[in-house]
Computed example of a mutant assay.
Amino acid sequence: MSKQIIRTAQAPAPVGPYNQAIAVSGRMLFVAGQIALNPSTGEIVGGGDVKQQTLQVMANLEAILTAGGATWADVVKTSVFLADMNDFAAVNGVYAQYFDEATAPARACVEVSRLPKDVLVEIECIAVIP
């Protein structure tokens, strides 16, 4: 089993001892949880607006997927972490812009007590590299 570190300046640098993504044997791509950080400034995008934060999270995920040779269509699993489950509908509305319901990946969505930098949403994903 080979493992390749995936890094791109188009997504925020990790804020701890982890990588943006790991490709395993050139077939599976494991993308670390992304929050609403602007990759250029390192600042949180969207303030208290969960929709704006989710758009930035999805942009960060897309940049990493692209760097790893994958697209949204290759994503097979996502995990969504919310600071408030009352934001589920708003996050789901943005999320649905990226995945067709008929072919959407498997997903878990949970409320957590706190997220890094006190953001409202974090999303991670796993993709199969074509």
Rank of each mutant, 00 (worst) to 15 (best):
E62W: 01
I35Y: 00
A32S: 10
S2F: 15
E62F: 04
I129V: 12
V50R: 00
N86Y: 04
A108D: 07
M58W: 03
A70Y: 01
I126H: 02
L82T: 06
P116G: 08
T41E: 12
A70V: 09
I35H: 00
I22T: 11
I123L: 04
A127W: 00
G42M: 09
Q53R: 04
Q34W: 02
S25N: 14
M85C: 06
L37G: 06
A21T: 05
P39W: 05
T66E: 04
M58H: 03
N38F: 04
V31K: 00
M58G: 03
F99M: 07
E43L: 07
R107K: 15
A96T: 15
A21N: 02
N86V: 02
V121C: 03
S2V: 09
G68Q: 05
I123F: 00
L29K: 01
A73F: 04
K3H: 13
S40E: 10
Q97W: 09
V80G: 00
V15E: 11
N19P: 11
K77V: 13
V121Y: 03
G26Q: 15
A127H: 02
S25Q: 10
A102P: 11
G26I: 09
G47T: 15
V75S: 05
V75T: 11
Q20K: 14
V45K: 01
V119F: 02
A59C: 12
L37M: 08
L61P: 00
V76F: 08
V75E: 03
Y95N: 11
Y98S: 07
A70K: 03
G47V: 10
I123D: 00
V45Q: 00
L65A: 10
A83H: 08
P14K: 10
D87M: 06
S79F: 04
T41I: 09
L115W: 02
T78N: 02
T78L: 04
R114H: 14
A36Q: 03
D84V: 03
P130D: 15
A67C: 10
L120C: 08
Q52S: 08
A63Y: 05
A13H: 07
A70P: 02
F88N: 11
E62I: 15
Q97N: 12
V45T: 09
Q10C: 13
E101L: 15
T8V: 14
S2E: 14
V76K: 08
E101V: 14
L61V: 14
K3E: 13
G68I: 06
L120Q: 01
I126T: 07
S2I: 13
Y98N: 07
F81A: 04
R7Q: 14
V24C: 10
N86A: 15
Q4P: 04
D74F: 03
A36C: 14
A36G: 06
S2T: 10
Q4Y: 06
Q20C: 15
M85V: 07
G47L: 12
I126G: 02
A70N: 10
G69R: 02
I5V: 11
A127N: 06
T103M: 11
Q53D: 13
P116W: 10
L37E: 01
